[in-house]
Design a binder for these strands. Structure first.
Lengths: 165, 165
DNA sequence: GTTGAAACAAAACATAA
DNA sequence: TTATGTTTTGTTTCAAC
């Protein structure tokens, strides 16, 4: 029996218990991850040393995966986005793992999902224009022996959730 | 004629020209947005003051939308993800805007896309378990008069792209 | 657009409570 | 967890290039 997840298995370490303070800290960091430790501690009403200790624990235990930045795709000359659902040939599932590793490094790929259901995965791509998307599909999907079918939907708007944790 | 995008229109300000230095700076920040200005300037081979000036410009012009953090959903007791595609009733398109605003504030909603194509949008939700997802669909989608149909796919794995800019 | 130097602020760490 | 002290490191401004 092969595992369900196609790429490197993740730790199944039980989720560390987060208290209300942790959640408020994560909420603040989600809004602005460059806030200084001091500013964070003030907003939380705790000592800077405590705040720092919390943050380190959150990083060490993997609750915080990384601090990152959201970039406007248009600024990078990537004004168009698409979602591409992909179905693999029945006999080609074992190729998903290597396929996944390759995809991750393709500049147009913003994120992708492995799915349970009719389609095997869904790729979110960010590109210059529709020709660029077509080229992506031809080069990285259609030409792949493992791919049975693809379906591309252009994205009118992409919204990130902003709810509290 | 109503606009295509259902939520607040975005600036159509032309993308500011980014040079190689800007792109390298963004790449570094994407890997770790809490790197100090000094460390960033060293990696780029420029003075700290120059690095700071670049970063401020990127923020001011909207190239950098926000500094944020990626949190492991499992740590929040949200161990399961799903993608839900939604088709609206033909006469209900005018409700998309208010629908969108509401969705953004629902804690389970990680992101969503407005689409051109057969489906009207696609919602990425993060939940405790499958019951939680079912409850989300019932409460926020099926019960909505504007929704004609939904289709839920569970996510086995969610991968973020890590290609250079 | 870039720089270095100076003044200021914060981080990191240890320690003791 | 906090408060405090010390040392090291980083931020920010600005005049000058």
């Amino acid at each position: 029996m092969t595992p369900v997840t196609p790429t490197a298995p993740k730790d199944l370490r039980p989720a560390p218990e987060l208290d209300d303070l942790d959640r408020r800290l994560l909420t603040l960091l989600r809004e602005n991850s460059r806030m200084t430790n001091q500013a964070l501690s003030e907003r939380l009403g705790i000592a800077p040393s405590t705040c720092l200790a919390r943050m380190k624990t959150l990083q060490r235990t993997g609750v915080i995966r990384r601090f990152t930045v959201e970039v406007d795709p248009r600024a990078l000359g990537r004004g168009i986005e698409a979602l591409i659902s992909v179905r693999l040939r029945a006999g080609a599932r074992h190729l998903m793992s290597s396929f996944s590793e390759g995809l991750k490094e393709v500049p147009e790929v913003s994120q992708f999902f492995f799915l349970a259901g009719a389609d095997d995965f869904l790729i979110h791509v960010v590109a210059r224009d529709t020709d660029h998307i077509r080229q992506f599909v031809l080069e990285h999907l259609s030409s792949n022996q493992a791919v049975a079918a693809t379906q591309t939907s252009l994205v009118f708007e992409h919204v990130h959730g902003s709810a509290e944790l």
